[in-house]
Design a protein around this nucleic acid. Structure first.
Length: 748
DNA sequence: AGCACGCCGACT
DNA sequence: GTCGGCGTGCTC
């Protein structure tokens, strides 16, 4: 977005510029470094700096980029030290007030240095070669002195057009650019710079969808909320195919009619050509698209367009939240429960929550959409903080899949096998109808556990104490937490017995073996993140599945979303209990969300889908919720259970300051604390463990040096929790200094 | 974050 | 005798 050539160089300071010393303008500049401070500089008056401007400043021995965070009132020279002078200003859109407020807010909330948060909004190449002006040519009417065949073709190709770009003309006339340049030199063609046409505006009335009654009502309510131009949040809840997208498209249409911008955030993987096409079908053009794969040049254009208002709608991953919108009027967070919204490195933020914050700052409406909302959003909806729109039915041809459960206690598969007779029978019927079946098992590898039959030795990761997972294809034992890999030995390392190691439990590889035995000759594919060949290969295989090349799919959570498999009518959940007893307080919520997603994939227009859950606990609230299609009860129980366990339904941040003069000792303490906190059974989420700091005020300044681990404590009794964590720490010298208790809502 | 300054080990 | 390791401190 910035370019060195855009830098307005400060004229050479002269002794007689006559400005009285007291009238010097001072600006406070924030640099995108891991520093929290703003730095004061003298501002050359001719740059006319304003808050938000992007400047270059001398900083220590180098020059860095910075953003004017504040312009000090004239005459207020606070510091007695000699100030350096701003070197120049970039001809780039300034950061709007709302965005700067958001960045400050996030820095405060996440305890991150402001400079580091600023990076989120400035993550662009500092220098780009200036964009080459695009040149168009038009005929002048003059005929060339020598009319060669090539020249004739050029003039003929241009005949129907007022102007064409040189490249397009050369292609159309099947000549090289030399011929065209020759004609320009002869004066037969004239050139002019082609101005960048503003992008085509999405048209709110291009092709409004036909909505069901329920959708119409929901859309009307959302439209009204948008037009209100006040901060508010609506949770849109509706199963896959219920038309959530169509409903929020109507909200976007309303924002467009009002002349406001809209941002649609989605998890990175959900931002597909399919979505962009759907948008284009409704509004006539694709939205601007923003994610990690967008080219630097395109980023620059989007920045400029969003700041000028030429771009009205952006669909983007979480980082799109930091674009310099000039008149944002609507934020939408699609698939709001997705964990991909959580940034876990650098600045730790949850993009869904920060979207709500930005909505608050911009005074506009925020819509959160999901088939399986997060507990947090549910609680907010239940307590009336968020509006709640439900779209309970599938619209159009697709019927909801029929769900049933198989009680594995009553109908267990034979020993060493994982598919029960009724599920196998259902798959047979499906295959006989020439349809596809999916066996879902969220376990990579061959077997999650390897045991020694002779001495009972269990293979464990040396770093994490988790079980090593056998990957038979790679002949390796792998830790799924840290990636530790070792060769699978033939003899037990504990007792030396040869050929005594047995796999315990199923993974997708083992399941594939069983499926191959049960359905010989039926084309099947196993899809997990272990698939060799990278995303390229994955895409190819998913396309092959969509085209019906495979009849049986065996997959991990990777198949739960994304690609549409049009012939898929049976989803068999091989072990619905995976993830329920892991000690993770979010286990039930996650399991429900995942199973709801994956079972929802069954069914197509003419063939209703079926989903079968194999479970040992058919009475578990998750299974009941899935089977009945009623999630109310489940959510209510989940919230109640969390409250009973002393867990807050909202995230909270806790900062533990480990005091001590010795940096290494402090790091060791902090890591031990983090581990101890992690191991506590009733805690999930994030704990910020900070290194030595002298006083609470020093946190912000000192924390960046010792940022060791950030995870978020979801705990109502924070003080008690921290005391417990500290009690578990090996060194009692570690002291708790500060806790920060932040419910995002409580900040307002 | 970068970058300089500073004080101890293996090389031309 | 120097090159270079990364520990510590500073940046308007």
């Amino acid at each position: 977005m910035m370019n060195a050539d855009d830098l307005d160089r400060k004229p050479k300071p002269s002794d007689d510029d006559g400005a009285p010393a007291g009238a010097a303008i001072i600006v406070d500049v924030l640099a995108p470094l891991a520093l929290d401070m703003v730095w004061s500089y003298l501002a050359p008056p001719e740059l006319a700096l304003a808050a938000g401007d992007i400047v270059r400043i001398p900083f220590g021995s180098r020059e860095v980029i910075g953003v004017v965070w504040a312009v000090r009132s004239p005459g207020a020279i606070a510091s007695d030290r000699k100030l350096k002078t701003v070197s120049g200003k970039y001809d780039a859109p300034p950061l709007p007030d709302g965005l700067r407020t958001l960045l400050d807010w996030i820095a405060r909330y996440t305890l991150a240095p402001r400079g580091q948060v600023l990076r989120l909004a400035l993550r662009h190449p500092e220098k780009l070669p200036p964009e080459a002006p695009r040149v168009a040519v038009a005929a002048t009417g003059k005929l060339p002195a020598r009319l060669t065949p090539a020249r004739r073709r050029v003039l003929a190709a241009l005949a129907g057009h007022r102007e064409m770009s040189r490249k397009a003309l050369a292609e159309a006339a099947e000549v090289s650019l030399t011929v065209i340049n020759g004609l320009i030199d002869d004066g037969c063609l004239e050139t002019h710079v082609l101005l960048d046409a503003p992008p085509l505006a999405p048209d709110p009335d291009f092709a409004p969808a036909t909505l069901s009654d329920g959708q119409t009502a929901a859309a009307a309510s959302l439209r009204a909320a948008v037009a209100d131009r006040q901060f508010g949040v609506t949770l849109i809840e509706g199963v896959t195919g219920s038309g959530k997208t169509e409903v929020y498209f109507e909200a976007i249409a309303e924002a467009l009619r009002q002349g406001w911008q809209a941002l649609v955030m989605m998890p990175e993987i959900a931002l597909t050509a399919q979505f962009l096409d759907r948008f284009a079908a409704r509004f006539g053009v694709r939205p601007a698209e923003w994610h990690s794969g967008v080219s630097p040049r395109q980023r620059e254009r989007i920045h400029a367009g969003v700041a000028s208002g030429d771009i009205q709608v952006v669909a983007g991953a979480r980082s799109a939240l930091f674009l310099p919108f000039s008149k944002l009027g609507l934020l939408i967070v699609d698939e709001e429960h997705e964990t991909a919204y959580k940034q876990e490195d650098g600045v730790h933020y949850h993009a869904r929550d920060m979207a709500v914050v930005r909505g608050r700052i911009e005074s506009c409406h925020v819509a959160l959409a999901s088939a399986t909302p997060s507990i947090e959003s549910r609680v907010n909806a239940m307590r009336g903080r968020y509006g709640h729109l439900r779209l309970p039915e599938r619209y159009g041809q697709r019927a909801m899949p029929r769900l049933s459960a198989i009680d594995l206690r009553k109908q267990p598969p034979p020993k060493g096998r994982w598919l029960s007779e009724p599920l196998i029978e259902a798959a047979r019927e499906t295959l006989a109808r020439d349809e596809q079946a999916l066996f879902y098992l969220n376990r990579r590898g061959y077997a999650p556990l390897t045991l020694c039959r002779s001495c009972g030795h269990r293979f464990q990761c040396p770093n994490c104490s988790a079980s090593l997972v056998e990957h038979r294809f790679r002949r390796a034992l792998i830790c799924h937490h840290c990636g530790h890999t070792e060769r699978r030995p033939d003899a037990c390392p504990a007792c030396g017995e040869v050929d005594a190691l047995v796999p315990a439990g199923p993974g997708v590889e083992r399941l594939a073996e069983e499926v191959a035995g049960l359905f010989p000759g039926v084309p099947a594919i196993t899809l997990s993140s272990d698939l060799a060949g990278g995303s390229e290969r994955m895409r190819k295989e998913l396309d092959a599945v969509a085209a019906g090349e495979f009849r049986i799919i065996i997959g991990t959570q990777l198949v739960a979303k994304g690609h549409n498999f049009p012939r898929l009518t049976l989803v068999g959940v091989v072990d619905a209990d995976v993830g329920l007893a892991t000690g993770d307080p979010r286990g039930a919520e996650r399991t429900f969300q995942m199973l709801q997603q994956v079972t929802g994939r069954a069914g197509r227009g003419d063939a209703p889908g079926r989903a079968i859950l194999q479970t040992h606990q058919p009475d578990h609230p998750v299974m009941m919720a899935l089977l009945s299609g009623q999630s109310e009860q489940f959510y209510a129980e989940e919230i109640g259970a969390r409250e009973a366990a002393g867990l807050a339904p909202f995230g909270r941040l806790a900062a533990v300051i480990v005091a001590g003069p010795d940096r290494h000792a402090a790091e060791t303490h902090a890591q031990a604390l983090a581990r101890a906190a992690h191991a506590m059974p009733d805690v999930s989420g994030d704990i910020i463990v900070l290194g030595p700091a002298e006083a609470p005020l020093a946190i912000v300044r000192g924390m960046h040096r010792f940022r060791l681990l950030v995870k978020c404590a979801r705990h109502t009794d924070l003080q008690g929790f921290l005391r417990a964590v500290l009690a578990a720490a090996p060194n009692p010298a570690a002291r708790m200094r500060v806790t920060v208790d932040v419910d995002p809502q409580s900040f307002f």
